[in-house]
Nucleic acid binder design. Structure first.
Length: 418
RNA sequence: GGGAGAGUGUCCCGAGCGGCAAAGGGGGCGGACUGUAAAUCCGCUGGCUACGCCUUCGUAGGUUCGAGUCCUACCUCUCCCA
């Protein structure tokens, strides 16, 4: 592939499909080719984990580091007190300081798996914008920073258009979010010489605000880079699964489910995802992508295993692959399927099938479980059952000492007496 | 402060003469077909100890045999006037 840029950094991003917009491509390219730059991505602390959408930008930081630059992962401890209104049609719930702190602790773990933190020139650093935002003095801040923001212009951003068009309230609190994010950028420049902020395409307006603020305050030239919004070829947004968001935290979303999520990638997206989410070389990806027809399933397995390895570790990835292979291909029992423990006395007395399905997390309520049974989706030990009043007793135990429950072709769980 | 409108099934959009568990979409889930894909077709999409019972239409009261629907107050939002 012909190199479009002078810097390794931008070339890698370009070739792997990470670039949506860059504020000044030539300027940034020249800088990155010449010296070690510091760039950052900001992350919300509104949940206990980050999700797949965030994984792209963490990967962005990974490639930044790989190509000889210094990444900063910014925790939004201060901005999460306000809540980003971008492209949202309602106000976020306000979080308490404690919740935010807990979330940050939980989120941190994921990053250290992907980025190399330390003190060296290209070691990643983690910062929390609460460190400077919470100390700000209101009037002082308005005079120093607020004066450079035009309300007319802020109202023209696409990110708030949704709210304004729907005639829904955009509180002053939220309106300040973009000012704070803009200020973050200049503050990170002052503290660490950060010259580049990256993020999803929805962050473009917010990032540009920082670039402009730096100008107006007489600061250095800053740059913005955004990644495309991830959508599946069929048009859906990526990152949602049956059970909600695809979290990177294994307690919220198991490695097995994570692997399955990527295993079920649509054909048309396989190569795109390989480039963005894995670290395989472009040559390897080209080879894998040449697989056609049902062989593309092999490509999906590689994709699933590689991404799972990055997020959950190689062992967990191999385990998930093995479990999947046994369950789906060999049709055999694999004891690493998600397992729910039941008290053996309870089993001896007999557990209702519907109840068991709910306990195993395969149905949200008895009613839903009943409907699944009635539509012929439920199997016990791989045999379809049609009686929703069936009772499971010790007789249903397989030689391995568990009962296998399935809803549909893809959802399996084990019931294990203890 | 004055005036006009809006809030519906806790995923979203959106109908709703006083008899409503509430039309119709989207999304999601399940089935068929496949390759754990897409597209297509079919079914399901409040809860329960289930021929019955319970909880739902911004909140709290009221009228009525009966209220999402009528009345009152309140909350939130939007627009116009001051």
């Amino acid at each position: 592939m012909a190199a479009k840029y002078k810097s390794d950094f931008l070339n890698v991003l370009e070739q792997r499909g990470f670039i949506h917009q860059i504020s000044d491509p030539e300027g940034l390219d020249a800088l990155a080719a010449k010296e070690t730059i510091t760039a950052y991505v900001g992350y919300d602390a509104t949940a206990t984990s980050i999700h797949i959408g965030n994984l792209i930008t963490v990967t962005l930081l990974y490639w930044l580091q790989e190509t000889g630059h210094r990444p900063i992962s910014l925790m939004g401890g201060g901005t999460s007190m306000v809540g980003d209104p971008s492209f949202r049609d309602d106000q976020r719930k306000l979080l308490t300081v404690e919740q935010i702190a807990t979330n940050i602790e939980s989120i941190k773990k994921v990053y250290s798996r992907i980025l190399r933190y330390g003190e060296g020139p290209t070691d990643a650093i983690m910062v929390n914008n609460a460190d400077w935002l919470l100390k700000l003095n209101y009037v002082e801040f308005l005079r120093d920073v607020g004066r450079y923001f035009s309300v007319n212009r802020m109202l023209s951003f696409d990110s708030v258009k949704l709210r304004l068009d729907r005639e829904q309230s955009l509180s002053f609190l939220e309106f300040n979010y973009m000012i704070m994010q803009g200020y973050d950028f200049t503050e990170l420049n002052r503290r660490y010489g950060t010259v580049l902020q990256m993020g999803g395409s929805d962050q473009w307006g917010n990032i540009i605000n920082g670039v402009e603020l730096s100008h107006k305050m007489g600061g250095p030239q800053l740059y913005a880079l955004t990644t495309p919004l991830l959508t599946k070829s069929s048009g859906e947004k990526m990152g949602k699964s049956a059970s909600g968001a695809v979290w990177l935290n294994g307690e919220l979303f198991s490695p097995y489910d994570f692997w399955q999520y990527f295993r079920n990638t649509e054909d048309a997206d396989v190569v795109k995802w390989l480039r963005i989410f894995t670290r395989l070389s472009l040559d390897e990806i080209a080879k894998i992508g040449a697989l056609g027809g049902s062989e593309i399933n092999e490509a999906k397995k590689i994709l699933a295993t590689e991404v799972t390895a990055i997020v959950h570790g190689r062992d967990a990835a191999e385990q998930a692959a093995t479990t999947a292979s046994a369950t789906f291909e060999a049709g055999s029992l694999d004891l690493s399927l998600p397992t729910t423990e039941v008290w053996k006395g309870e089993l001896a007395a007999g557990i209702g099938l519907l109840n068991a399905l709910v306990q195993a997390g395969l149905a949200g309520s008895n009613g839903e479980a009943r409907r699944h049974v009635q539509s012929g989706a439920v199997r016990v030990n791989d045999d379809v059952v049609s009686d929703d009043r069936l009772t499971l007793g010790t007789a249903a135990l397989l030689p391995e000492g568990v009962i296998k429950l399935s809803v549909g072709k893809k959802k399996h769980a084990l019931l294990k007496p203890v």
